[in-house]
Nucleic acid binder design. Structure first.
Lengths: 257, 257
DNA sequence: ATGTGTAATTGGTATATCCCAATCTTGCCG
DNA sequence: CGGCAAGATTGGGATATACCAATTACACAT
C-alpha cells in the first residue's frame, strides 16, 4: 500500500571544514570503497590496513568506523572484521521491547489473550527469517497491556528451531528477556517500519477502541549480533495511548564531502 | 489527549562486563553526577578534571562523553564546557527536513498554498520558543508536495526577530536551507513527537484524501547549536504516502550498572 | 562606562603504543 | 574423515602526549 520511505539519510547539512581533517578524508575513502564495488556483508579492509594505506593512525580509523557504525552503515565483529550493512537505513536508536518501554514509564507490562501456535513458513516470511519455505515457525499473538489496559496488539513469528518448547505461559512477559535467559539469544538490533493506519473492527475490538480508530502499525525484523533474523513482528498500537517522542539531531563531525 | 510516551530509555539490556572497564566506571560516575544535583544546562566538570579525578586518561573520558552526546544526555560547546541536556529523551537520529527527505528519495520537493503571516505569540507558543507572551511570531502554512502530489500539511512558527523580511515566496523550498543561507541559523537538533491520528475534513481536503484518513502528526521544536528555540512546527503526513523506517539497536558498550 | 585585544580555559583532533578478547586458520592427532 | 588445540588475525579498550580551535575572562585603553 504505502511507498516505504526513510526519514533520514547520511547527507549532513552543508558544513564544509576548510582544514580538510584527516577523519573526513578517511570517511570519504571508506564510503567510496563501499559505494564502489562492495555489496552487503562484504568485508572492508582491516583497521590496520586502512590506517597504513591512508597514512593515519589506527585510532583515527577507529573513530571513523565508530561513527559509521553508529550510522548503521557498517558493523564490526571482533576477531573477524568490518562489514557493509545491507541497506543503509536511518540512524540507530535504542531498541525497545514493549516491556522495557512500559517499565520505563513506571507502568506494569502484561499480556492478554496469548496464543502460541506452530505452522510452516510461507514464502515471504521464510525469506525474511532466512529459512527454507515450509520450515516450522512459532507464531505468538498477544494483546499487550500497561497497568491492565490494552495498548498494543502484537503478532510475532520466530523460527521454531530457535525456541524449542516455547509455550503460551512463557510469553506473558518480555519475549526478549525470555530469548536472552532461556535460549541465549541476544537481540542486537531491529529494522522497523512505522506506519499510521486505522484499525479494522476485529483488531479494534481486541484493543477495546472504536472501529477505524487511529493506530501505529510497527513492522519489525529483529536480528541477533551476527545478523541472523530472530523475530518478525507486526504490532498495532493504540494512537490515543501511544506516541513516539524522540530527538533528532544533525550528524556530528562529518563534512559535506 | 494522548499520554506522551518515549520509545526508549538509557537502560541497556543486561550485559554486565566482569572486568569492570574504566569506561563504565567513568560513565557511571558522570551519570551519578548528573542525577545527583545537576539540573538542565548545568556544567559538568571539564574533561581534564574528570580524567584526573577518576584516574583515567582524558581520551577515555572523551569516549564516554562522546557516547553520552550521541545519547543526547549531554552536549558540548568547544571552548566552553560540557552541559546537561534538559530532558533525557530518546536516542538521536539524523535530522530530516522535508526537502532533504524527499530529495533522498529522488522526488522533487515543493510547496502549495503557502501563507506567511505575523501574529503575537500565545502563552504556550511563547513558552516553547522562550519568548515573552505577545512577542511577534511568523507563522508559515504550507502544503508540501513530492513530485507535485501533496504529502504533508505543515504549520511552522518562528520568532519574528529571527527572520526579518520573510515572505511567502521565500519558503516555497526548504525552510532550513533558507534559515542557514540568509539568516545564518543552523538547526542543530529537534525534539519531535509523532502521533498517529486521523485527518479532519478540512486538513484531509488540503491533502486530497478522504476525511478521517490515517495520518502521522509530527510535533517538532527545532533548536540551534546553542539550544535556542528556532522553530515550532506541526506537520500532518498522509499515511498512504509516508511511513517511518528505521533501525533500532541496543546501546553499545554500556554495562548494566 | 565602553570597547578591545590578549591570555587562559575548554573541547576537538591526531599520533604512537600497548595489551586484551573474540574469531578464524591451520595443522596435528586419533 | 572428524575433532581439537595452538597460533595468527582482527576488533576493543586504554594510556600518554601534542597541538588546534572556539570561547570566555580580564586587564587595559579610550
Amino acid at each position: 500500500m504505502s511507498s516505504l520511505v526513510q526519514p533520514a539519510r547520511p547527507e549532513p547539512s552543508a558544513r564544509a571544514k576548510s582544514n580538510g581533517g584527516k577523519s573526513e578524508r578517511v570517511r570519504r575513502h571508506v564510503l567510496q570503497t563501499i559505494d564502489a564495488g562492495l555489496g552487503p556483508h562484504d568485508r572492508l579492509p582491516t583497521e590496520r590496513e586502512l590506517a597504513e594505506q591512508l597514512g593515519v593512525s589506527r585510532l583515527t580509523v577507529q573513530r571513523v568506523l565508530d561513527d559509521l557504525t553508529t550510522e548503521n552503515r557498517i558493523y564490526r565483529i571482533q576477531g573477524s572484521g568490518t562489514f557493509v550493512r545491507p541497506t543503509r537505513i536511518a540512524k540507530s536508536m535504542e531498541l525497545t521491547s514493549f516491556s522495557e518501554d512500559m517499565r520505563s514509564r513506571r507502568m506494569a507490562p502484561g499480556s492478554l489473550e496469548i496464543s502460541v501456535t506452530q505452522e510452516p513458513a510461507g514464502a515471504n516470511l521464510a525469506a525474511l527469517l532466512e529459512l527454507s519455505p515450509g520450515s516450522p515457525v512459532v507464531s505468538i499473538r498477544r494483546v499487550r497491556t500497561a497497568d491492565g489496559a490494552p495498548i498494543c496488539l502484537e503478532r510475532s513469528q520466530l523460527p521454531a528451531e530457535l525456541v524449542p518448547g516455547l509455550s503460551a505461559e512463557d510469553v506473558s512477559g518480555s519475549l526478549y528477556e525470555l530469548l536472552a535467559e532461556r535460549y541465549g539469544i541476544q537481540i542486537d538490533r531491529a529494522d522497523q517500519t512505522i506506519r499510521a493506519t486505522v484499525l479494522d473492527p476485529d483488531d479494534a475490538s481486541d484493543l477495546e477502541v472504536p472501529a477505524y480508530s487511529a493506530a501505529f502499525e510497527v513492522d519489525r525484523l529483529a536480528v541477533d549480533h551476527r545478523g541472523r533474523p530472530v523475530e518478525h513482528a507486526v504490532s498495532l498500537y493504540r494512537a490515543d495511548r501511544y506516541s513516539y517522542q524522540l530527538t533528532v539531531a544533525v550528524a556530528k563531525r562529518h563534512g559535506t564531502g
